[in-house]
């Protein structure tokens, strides 16, 4: 057990990076419109399927396919935010939550109708290549790429939110809707932009997930819980916190599995999450509950 611990820690941290990219969009949406997007996991898996299909039939290369996927997803994000979520966002948390819940079911079942229930993968050589291989620890290229991309996505998103006019306007809209409107910022448009940023991260996460793990139309819900866990541990709405949240969750899973057994990997992750939720419902890293 102890001799396998270093491997568990390394894999846990790297997996945590992937979890962070999965969760970052959810964190963004929560931070900006106080909405828990139940459809987040399914939107990501929608991205995975799109990338897979485009790579299969058009480009052959998943990274180029990703670009096309992002274009489609941007249109989709515009539609769901503008025509659905924005219509109910002012009526309190519940209707918006239920709308995203409905969306989640629609997306996963539509994927099932189009692609069938089969388990799929996005083939990639990264999975079979090793970056490091020693007696105790080996690091697959895929996991390393996941982690690097995660850090890059979080860094870029933080830059966009903090250093660009659009990012500042989105932040303003989230911290004081009325004041932002008085400055000429259409806050509903900001929500649309935020959702568009979110689906870009979701599409990237979706491609990585599809290359790393097998997936099928209903996988989205699993990743929703992971995203939620990342966001809760990292503090709702905090972007750098998301990375820490992902790493903690990844470690909880792999270190737990290392000592109890690999079949308990997911269970230990969920239990750690439940304990954190019960003890510090506002998240481990958040300063205070923002109201």
């Amino acid at each position: 057990m102890l001799e396998t611990l270093p491997q568990a820690v390394v894999t846990g941290v790297l997996l945590g990076g992937l979890y962070a990219v999965i969760g970052i969009g959810m964190s963004l949406i929560f931070g900006i419109m106080k909405l828990t997007n139940i459809a987040h996991g399914d939107i990501m898996i929608l991205g995975t399927f799109l990338t897979m299909r485009i790579a299969q039939s058009l480009t052959g290369n998943p990274v180029i396919a990703l670009l096309l996927t992002i274009v489609i997803m941007l249109v989709f994000a515009f539609a769901i935010q503008n025509f659905l979520i924005n219509k109910v966002i002012a009526k309190g948390a519940e209707p918006a939550l239920l709308v995203t819940f409905g969306l989640s079911i629609i997306i996963s079942n539509a994927l099932f109708l189009v692609f069938g229930a089969n388990t799929r993968t996005i083939p990639s050589q990264l999975v079979t290549t090793n970056l490091i291989r020693t007696a105790h620890v080996s690091v697959s290229m895929m996991y390393a790429v996941n982690f690097i991309v995660a850090v890059a996505v979080i860094a870029v998103l933080s830059l966009v939110m903090n250093k660009t006019s659009l990012g500042r306007a989105i932040r303003a809209a989230s911290s004081d809707t009325v004041m932002s409107e008085l400055l000429g910022i259409n806050t509903k448009h900001m929500y649309v932009y935020a959702m568009m940023l979110t689906v870009v991260t979701a599409a990237i996460a979706g491609m990585l997930v599809g290359m790393t793990f097998p997936f099928y139309p209903t996988t989205g819900t699993q990743y929703l819980i992971i995203a939620f866990g990342v966001v809760v541990i990292g503090g709702m709405g905090s972007l750098p916190g998301t990375l820490v949240g992902g790493i903690i969750l990844g470690l909880a899973q792999l270190v737990g599995a290392n000592f109890i057994g690999p079949t308990y990997q997911q269970l230990t992750g969920f239990l750690v999450l439940l304990v954190i939720l019960a003890i510090r419902p506002q998240g481990l890293l958040s300063k205070a509950v923002r109201k």
Binding site: R171, A172, S175, D176, V178, M179, S180, E181, L182, L183, G184, I185, N186, T187
Partner: peptide
């Protein structure tokens, strides 16, 4: 919509400054 009115050239400083 407030933002549209503001864009026509009316600015308002609401009660309590409301800085970000």
């Amino acid at each position: 919509r407030t933002s549209k009115i503001a864009s026509k050239g009316i600015a308002m400083t609401p009660e309590g400054s409301r800085v970000f």
